[in-house]
Simulated scan of single mutants.
Amino acid sequence: MAKTLKRTAAFTALARALTSGARGGPSIGARLAAVPRMVLASMRGEYDGGKRIALMAAATAYVVSPVDLVPEAVMFVFGLADDAIMITWLAGTVLSETERFLAWERQRASVIPGSVVP
């Protein structure tokens, strides 16, 4: 059930991102520009997206790897279908995670650094 909800959330985020220009959400360009910052913040331990970034990297590696040619060679239609599903999931996840990261950046920018004085 939880995996289905995560998949549904990724596909919903993809649909929202593709139509967000009319609603004032972050553009695709802003989301893609946020990816390097998101990776760096995760590597520094500031942002908690490390596992999700690793899954996105693994999905990308699967789609572009020569190992992925085996399903296409054996079962042409099903081999292409697994690529289409993986790419759709990847796009939705990237868009969802970048939206989450951009919200995290906005929230973090609104915090004034300093210390609390009793």
Results as ranks from 00 to 15, higher is better:
residue 23 R to A: 15
residue 59 A to R: 07
residue 73 A to N: 10
residue 1 M to R: 08
residue 115 S to E: 13
residue 111 V to E: 13
residue 49 G to R: 01
residue 40 L to C: 08
residue 118 P to W: 09
residue 95 L to Y: 04
residue 113 P to I: 15
residue 106 R to N: 12
residue 4 T to R: 07
residue 49 G to N: 06
residue 45 G to Y: 07
residue 85 I to T: 05
residue 19 T to E: 03
residue 57 A to W: 04
residue 84 A to E: 03
residue 46 E to F: 07
residue 107 Q to Y: 15
residue 85 I to H: 02
residue 69 L to E: 11
residue 74 V to H: 02
residue 87 I to N: 01
residue 70 V to I: 15
residue 87 I to C: 04
residue 13 A to I: 01
residue 63 V to C: 05
residue 94 V to D: 00
residue 20 S to C: 06
residue 105 E to R: 13
residue 118 P to T: 14
residue 101 F to S: 00
residue 68 D to S: 12
residue 74 V to S: 03
residue 32 L to S: 03
residue 74 V to Q: 03
residue 38 M to H: 02
residue 37 R to Q: 09
residue 18 L to Y: 07
residue 14 L to N: 13
residue 47 Y to S: 02
residue 82 D to K: 09
residue 24 G to Q: 07
residue 93 T to P: 00
residue 25 G to I: 07
residue 43 M to D: 12
residue 73 A to F: 08
residue 33 A to F: 11
residue 113 P to R: 15
residue 21 G to H: 09
residue 82 D to T: 11
residue 31 R to Q: 08
residue 72 E to H: 12
residue 45 G to C: 08
residue 39 V to D: 01
residue 10 A to L: 03
residue 35 V to N: 00
residue 9 A to F: 10
residue 15 A to Q: 12
residue 96 S to D: 07
residue 29 G to A: 12
residue 29 G to H: 08
residue 11 F to A: 10
residue 37 R to D: 11
residue 6 K to A: 15
residue 65 S to H: 14
residue 98 T to K: 00
residue 62 Y to L: 14
residue 88 T to C: 06
residue 78 F to W: 12
residue 19 T to L: 14
residue 86 M to G: 02
residue 52 R to C: 04
residue 106 R to D: 10
residue 15 A to L: 12
residue 114 G to H: 13
residue 77 V to P: 00
residue 32 L to C: 04
residue 30 A to M: 10
residue 97 E to F: 06
residue 55 L to A: 11
residue 92 G to S: 02
residue 44 R to T: 04
residue 76 F to V: 02
residue 54 A to P: 01
residue 17 A to Q: 02
residue 12 T to N: 14
residue 49 G to C: 10
residue 33 A to C: 06
residue 52 R to T: 09
residue 113 P to L: 15
residue 2 A to L: 13
residue 30 A to H: 03
residue 6 K to G: 09
residue 15 A to Y: 13
residue 11 F to Y: 15
residue 56 M to E: 07
residue 73 A to P: 03
residue 44 R to P: 01
residue 82 D to L: 08
residue 27 S to N: 09
residue 20 S to A: 13
residue 20 S to E: 05
residue 32 L to F: 13
residue 101 F to L: 03
residue 105 E to Y: 01
residue 70 V to H: 09
residue 78 F to K: 04
residue 67 V to E: 05
residue 11 F to K: 11
residue 8 T to F: 15
residue 41 A to Q: 03
residue 87 I to W: 04
residue 16 R to G: 07
residue 18 L to R: 12
residue 88 T to S: 13
residue 92 G to D: 00
residue 26 P to K: 04
residue 69 L to Q: 11
residue 19 T to V: 13
residue 87 I to K: 05
residue 73 A to M: 14
residue 55 L to I: 10
residue 35 V to A: 04
residue 26 P to R: 06
residue 55 L to N: 06
residue 16 R to W: 15
residue 57 A to Q: 12
residue 69 L to Y: 09
residue 61 A to N: 13
residue 48 D to W: 08
residue 100 R to T: 09
